[in-house]
Design a protein around this nucleic acid. Structure first.
Length: 339
DNA sequence: AATACGGGGAT
DNA sequence: ATCCCAGTATT
């Protein structure tokens, strides 16, 4: 890329950005802690879902020391519904590291940022540029798509993004590239007629902008059958168990379940539950994760055993994993209300 | 270099 | 039903 064209790209895109900038709520306050939270929450997550959770999270955990002092379960509970729960666990660990090593503040040094759990190249660059005014290229999926098309590449590289950065304007530039990717240079059907770079775009000239960047072939998701007990005690409370601290829905609570087409009696045996009376089948439920599908076969049952019995109020404080959260909501009206 | 890791919105 | 996303950690 010769310097004249680079400057032309920068001039046009920043000019476009001045007129079409998205007014996102989390762009107004650029304090390092808020930027960190915003970027972690935004990762692979729609902006609309982030707004609500971000405000709620900030009320409960307004600064790094407050977050560091919290119980992990409470952090997970506020993360419920956002997905990718390792983000919440890493954020909590990062807060503790920031208290121990950086006086309870988000560090400005790029190497210190990268050392925080959950902070990778993108988030380090985002914090660097948005909160600390550094010249760092935030190479996200938008940038990868915009640059692959602009230069007609199967895949763009972080180095290319770095080379286009206008000195001293990284924050605006990063947002400009993201907004172009979100509003104009969209994945399926790019709106090239609205693009300020259309006549410079090699991918468009080659007639293959819409198919860039080249995506790897996806394997079909395996389907797993999961038998689940919607379990109650004599008082009508719901019996929940906690998932392991690693892997899918790590640390989240759920109805006692077993994978692999087990019978309800087998689920009870595996969780050391004593069931009283009949089990009642509930409508089956299909739950799609990123990389697998659960065919959930829920049964309503009454019994006792080594589970955590929760009433409706307690349930709201616990982080519930995907399918069980859905089941619990469906059962909500039936769960005992505290007096 | 692949794969694991959620959930919701757009098409 | 499928694709995609303000990615990161692990293997």
């Amino acid at each position: 890329m010769d310097p004249v064209s680079t400057e032309e790209i920068q001039r046009r895109l920043l000019g476009w950005f001045a007129r079409h900038r998205r007014d996102l709520p989390f762009r107004r306050d650029r304090s390092p802690y808020r930027v960190l939270l915003t970027e972690v929450m935004s990762q692979q997550t729609a902006a609309e879902a982030v707004g609500h959770h971000l405000e709620r999270f900030l009320v409960r955990f307004p600064d790094v020391p407050t977050l560091a002092a919290a119980a992990e379960q409470d952090v997970l509970a506020l993360w419920q519904g956002l997905g990718y729960y390792s983000r919440a666990r890493n954020l909590h660990r990062a807060a503790r590291m920031m208290v121990e090593r950086f006086g309870g503040h988000v560090p400005a040094d790029p190497a210190d940022l990268r050392a925080l759990p959950g902070v990778g190249p993108y988030i380090a660059a985002a914090i660097g540029s948005f909160a600390f005014g550094r010249d760092a290229a935030a190479f996200d999926a938008n940038a990868a798509r915009v640059l692959a098309r602009l230069f007609d590449l199967d895949r763009a590289t972080p180095g290319l993004a770095e080379s286009l950065l206008p000195h001293g304007r990284a924050a605006d530039w990063n947002e400009a590239v993201m907004d172009l990717g979100a509003l104009v240079c969209v994945p399926r059907a790019p709106r090239c007629a609205l693009c300020p770079l259309a006549d410079l775009c090699a991918g468009r000239q080659a007639g293959r902008a819409a198919s860039l960047p080249c995506k790897p072939v996806r394997r079909p998701r395996p389907e797993v059958e999961v038998t689940t007990l919607v379990l109650r005690d004599g008082a009508g409370r719901l019996g929940l168990v906690q998932r392991p601290s690693a892997g899918l829905l790590a640390g989240m609570w759920e109805c006692p379940s077993v994978e692999g087409g087990a019978s309800p009696a087998e689920v009870a045996r595996r969780h050391s539950l004593d069931l009283c009376g009949e089990v009642e089948p509930l409508p089956a439920l299909r739950y799609t994760f990123t990389h697998r599908i659960w065919r959930v076969r829920p049964y309503r049952a009454v019994g006792h055993g080594p589970v955590r019995w929760v009433d409706a109020a307690e349930m709201r404080e616990l982080p519930l994993g995907g399918p069980s959260a859905r089941l619990a909501v469906a059962e909500g009206a039936r769960i005992a209300v505290p007096k």
